[in-house]
């Protein structure tokens, strides 16, 4: 199983006007690695999910995500935005954005990893560490340590 996240999928200076631009920007990183085979198709899936119920949660987090036929393996892209982007959370814009891409079929192992990632996001210490991360590799290490325990 390849890594959930690589430094290429991390953007610590995310600049985007709205959540759809954020999704496009982060998804492009996954697409250029071949993990997303059809960028437009995947973005449509993300958008459909986002329209069902905005994915922003309190504490400055946005989690655009989708299980999509255009995803080859479970992947995580991370963006940090200084100004914040509105993801529909009640307490304002999100400065930490996780784009979660899961294959439509997704076997249980993969989905379990995504589940434990989601569980980590709830912890303030994990969020703070992400805000403090100095470079993309630090974010990757943090995710690997917290989520995969390595």
């Amino acid at each position: 199983m390849s890594d959930l996240i690589t430094p290429d999928f991390v953007d610590l200076d995310l600049r985007a006007a709205d959540r759809h631009e954020v999704a496009f920007s982060l998804a492009s990183r996954l697409a250029s690695d071949g993990r997303v085979t059809d960028l437009a198709g995947f973005l449509a899936d993300v958008r459909a999910r986002e329209e069902q119920m905005p994915t922003g949660i309190e504490g400055g987090i946005g989690i655009p995500h989708a299980r999509s036929a255009h995803v080859t393996e479970p992947s995580l892209a991370f963006g940090r935005s200084t100004g914040g982007v509105d993801f529909g959370a009640e307490d304002g814009p999100a400065d930490l954005v996780f784009l979660i891409a899961a294959p439509a079929g997704g076997d249980t192992d993969h989905l379990t990893i995504l589940a434990s990632l989601a569980r980590r996001l709830v912890h303030a210490s994990f969020r703070q560490a992400l805000r403090d991360a100095s470079d993309p590799q630090a974010v990757v290490d943090l995710v690997n340590k917290e989520v995969l325990g390595r």
């Binding site: 989690i63 299980r67 589940a115 989601a118 709830v122």
Partner: peptide, 17 residues
């Protein structure tokens, strides 16, 4: 939650904590 990969688990974790 609708997709079942993020909020479902975040909510569980938050409740457990």
């Amino acid at each position: 939650c609708p997709t079942g990969i993020a909020h479902t688990y975040m909510a569980a974790e938050a409740l457990e904590q």
